[in-house]
Structure formats: structure tokens, C-alpha cells
Amino acid sequence: MYQTQRPSRSEFVTIRTLQYHVRRWGDASASPTGASLVLAHGWMDVGASYQFVVDALSEAFFQGRQIIAPDWRGFGLTAAPTPADHYHFADYLADLDQLLDHYAPSQAVDLVGHSMGGNIAMLYAGVRPQRIRRLVNLEGFGMPASQPSQAAARYAQWMDDLRRLERGEITLKGYDSADGVARRLMKTNPRLSPDKAQWLAQHWARPDAQGQWHILGDAAHKIVSAQLYRVDETLAIHSAIAAPTLAVQASDDSMGQWWKGRYTLAEFHERLKVVPDCRTAVVQDAGHMLHHDQPQAVAALIEHFLWDKKH
């Protein structure tokens, strides 16, 4: 199994109505830049997912720096709200806002987000621009543009999904062992090595009393959002981002695989033009889980960008 170089501390903090679980590395004292580093995970992932990147950071960068990675509500060890049959995206912004109040009450932070976490990070940086010193978005592309004419069908789908969840038709698959979880992770991401998959499985899932392993994620996350994705609203928020921003994508075209031409990398790059200070980078030989595939390259990009003396 993968051997961590920099073990994290696991802690819980009261955020709104929840006991939020947070992975914490490093020193709580001021970092060389005066900024804590906050790592936001993606959908059906956990904060521990950043372990490989944290291990790959240089000692000079790591020393004296507080690094935190929360488990979003209903993921990892942060329990779902009770009762909960769906999730509102805006809650992630409010949760992050209060997490920063707790961990970095008087300073702007460096914020890194992957996938869903990248979308959260971009929105939060536009809503609270004074709270973010620098921003790194790892494959957080947003969604295809929607049309108002789609709203009625979307609300109907949402209501139908709620009933399907109640009937037990929307679930997360169980596994007979941690090895089964690891095999699932490697099937989803063929670049993931067995040692990393075994390590991630211990954090991504837990066994029940009968020894069946279950993903640490609430099935209600699979409920479609009742609201359409509004590109004009998103771009207006992104245009308010004050922090220097780095948008990182993998060499594999995740969007081509997901959207089949409905939303492309070219369109994503066009949207990035509204961000006042934004540059881009590509991680070679990597897919959507680029922080697992090439943690050294991702760590180097983050480190160089956060230490760039030009800003």
C-alpha cells in the first residue's frame, strides 16, 4: 500500500448544522506567503484524495504552511444533513465561507479545487474575492449551457428522482472488500497504481457491521439539480474574481468523453476570458483525476504559481 510522506491529522469542526471533517497537514502558523492552502475535492471524492499532491510538495513550500482539505457535506466523514434527499450547490459556498472563518479568519487563502471543487472554488472566488489570494482550478469546467425552455423538464426530473431515491432505486454500489473498492477505482482510472488505489480505498469507503464496504458518499448526491446551470450568471460571478487564477486541464479530453460535443474545451477556454487574471496549463499523460495520475506535476504547478513573484 502507498506510504504517506506527510500524514494528515483528522479533525471535526462545527460548520452550520454539521460536524465537518477536515484533513489537516502542516503548521497552523503563518505560511511564507501569509496564506493557508485549502484543497477542495470533487464529486464522490474525499479530502484525503490530495494526499499524493501534498506528499509531492517541496519541503521549502510545505514548511510553516497550514494545508486543509475538508470533506464536503455528505462526502467522506462529513455526515449528510438529516434528513436529506437532495443537495443545493450554494450550500458548498456557505460551508466554505464558514470553514475559512474558522481556519483563516484574518487572511486571504490560496484555494485549489478539483472538478466539482474547482467549480465551487471559481464561484466562491467571485462571490468573496477578498478571501482568496490565489486560485487554482483543476479540471473544474462547469456545465453545458442551458436554455430556459429546459426548466420544466428539469423540475419534473428532479421530482421524479426524489421518488426514485425514496423507493431505493438510487443507490451506491457496495463492495465485498477494500480490494473490491480498489479494483473499482482502478477500473474508473486505469492510470491509478495498485498501491495508491489500496490507500484511497481505505479513505473512500468503510465497512459496515457485516463487512460490506460502502462508498463514503450520500446517494442523494446523484439527484439531478432542480436548477438549470446558468452560464450568464456563472460568467458574471467569474468576472468578479480578483485573485490571479490558474486553470489546469489534463492531456486527456475529459469533456469530450463526457459531453460528446455538447460542451467543449474550446468553449471552456472562451468562458475563462472573463476572469481578469487567468492563465492555463496542461498536465501531460493524465486524465480527469490528474492529482492521482501525476501528483508531482500538479504539485509543481501549484507551488510555482503560488510562489510566483510577479503577483
Rank of each mutant, 00 (worst) to 15 (best):
V181N: 03
T188Y: 15
D110H: 13
R73G: 01
K273L: 04
W307I: 03
H203Q: 12
V298Y: 01
D253M: 09
M122P: 05
N137K: 07
A84D: 02
G76P: 00
A108D: 08
P81G: 06
C278F: 00
A286E: 08
T33K: 01
R65H: 04
L235D: 03
Y92E: 00
Q257F: 04
A209K: 14
M44D: 07
G217T: 11
D55V: 10
R184F: 11
W43Q: 09
L100N: 03
A35Y: 10
T17V: 09
Q210G: 14
V136A: 12
L272V: 05
D95S: 02
L235C: 07
I120A: 05
H214Y: 11
M255C: 08
D252N: 14
K196Q: 08
T33P: 01
G256N: 06
S29P: 04
G47N: 03
W43P: 11
L18C: 05
V13H: 12
L111S: 02
L200T: 11
A242Q: 11
Q150R: 14
A219H: 00
T17H: 15
H292A: 06
E169F: 06
R16T: 12
S36D: 14
Y175R: 05
D160G: 14
H102G: 05
P295V: 02
V136M: 10
A226M: 13
Q294D: 04
R183P: 03
W25G: 07
L265I: 15
G126T: 13
L99E: 00
L216W: 08
L165F: 09
S193G: 13
S239V: 00
S58K: 10
Y92L: 11
T264H: 13
H288G: 00
S225G: 13
Q210D: 03
T14W: 01
N189L: 06
F75H: 14
E233P: 05
L39E: 04
V248Y: 09
I241H: 14
A266V: 05
L301W: 03
S58W: 04
A40I: 15
M143D: 12
L37R: 01
L306M: 13
H292F: 09
R191K: 10
W199D: 06
L306H: 10
Q227T: 12
V38M: 09
Q257H: 13
